[in-house]
């Protein structure tokens, strides 16, 4: 049975070199300043210099707006999709755009939102007149939400599909109308899907720097953009790593907040 350990050698090497070492290094790096000296300065600066805190706050705010607007669009969509006849086919159509390179989809909006682009053509047509759309907060939020929608629809769709139909019958039977049934039964029972969607969208919304760069111009700075900037532009890896550690912490906080709180798991079947 000595074979068992030989199986594991390449895999353990991977865990050591590409999982543990990089994560440890990013933490380690966060304690060094730009000239390579050990310091707590990065954290000190992060916490005291208003710019970083404001950027973090803004990034979280943007991510919340993106996630909530995605949720508002996706929940009704998932609900309606579930009633369709060939719902698996329609779901596939929702998933298909996620197969197209993210950068190409973002690039499409550079054309759509440009000064003479189709959206401005349309605005002129309806008499609103053309506007600067590209490089605004709204355009960044719109494109991010556009990219994330399928990732929110899928988990909600799945939790709706798993919902035992007799739950809805039972609710109606006990006198609840459609709205009461939705609020008291359907929504609470599909919360796991909503939470999964929230996790899947909130964290990337904090970190997708390519959308901010291409659509938000340099107006919108998120945690991800800041990390990219510090690593690849200003070469201040220490500060970049510090923000990275903050992002990792944010990830754990989100996962903690969206865990299944009432460990009930009481699915009757």
């Amino acid at each position: 049975m000595h074979k068992k350990t030989t199986y594991l050698i390449p895999y353990m090497l991977w865990i050591g070199l590409f999982v543990i070492a990089p994560m440890a290094l990013i933490l380690y790096q966060s304690f060094f300043n730009i000239s390579g000296h050990f310091t707590m300065g990065n954290y000190e600066q992060y916490l005291t210099n208003g710019v970083y805190l404001k950027m973090t706050f803004n990034s979280i705010l943007y991510a919340l707006i993106i996630t909530m607007s995605t949720l508002l669009i996706s929940y009704p969509t998932a609900l309606l999709l579930n009633r369709l006849k060939n719902k698996q086919f329609w779901l596939l159509l929702v998933i298909l755009p996620t197969w197209i390179n993210l950068l190409l989809k973002t690039y499409a909006f550079i054309g759509l939102f440009s000064q003479n682009g189709s959206v401005n053509d349309f605005l002129r047509f309806v008499g609103v007149g053309s506007h600067q759309i590209l490089f605004t907060d709204a355009s960044f939020i719109f494109v991010a939400a556009y990219i994330e929608i399928p990732f929110m629809i899928l988990p909600i769709f799945n939790s709706l599909a798993e919902l035992n139909p007799s739950m809805i019958n039972a609710s109606r039977d006990l006198g609840a109308n459609s709205w009461q049934t939705f609020r008291r039964v359907i929504l609470p029972l599909t919360m796991p899907g909503v939470k999964a969607g929230f996790q899947a969208i909130f964290i990337p919304s904090l970190s997708l720097f390519m959308i901010t760069r291409l659509i938000g111009g340099n107006r919108v700075i998120t945690l991800g953009t800041a990390i990219e900037e510090h690593f690849l532009v200003t070469q201040n890896w220490g500060m970049g790593s510090t923000i990275g550690v903050v992002l990792i912490l944010a990830m754990f906080v989100v996962m903690y907040l969206t865990r299944d709180r009432k460990a009930k798991g009481g699915r009757i079947q």
Binding site: N164, S166, M167, A170, D173, G175, N177, G266, I268
Partner: peptide, 16 residues
């Protein structure tokens, strides 16, 4: 929801 009857379901359909 407006009928004066109530049902005991085969799978109970209790709200988890």
């Amino acid at each position: 929801n407006e009928r004066q009857v109530n049902t005991v379901f085969q799978d109970y359909a209790l709200f988890p």
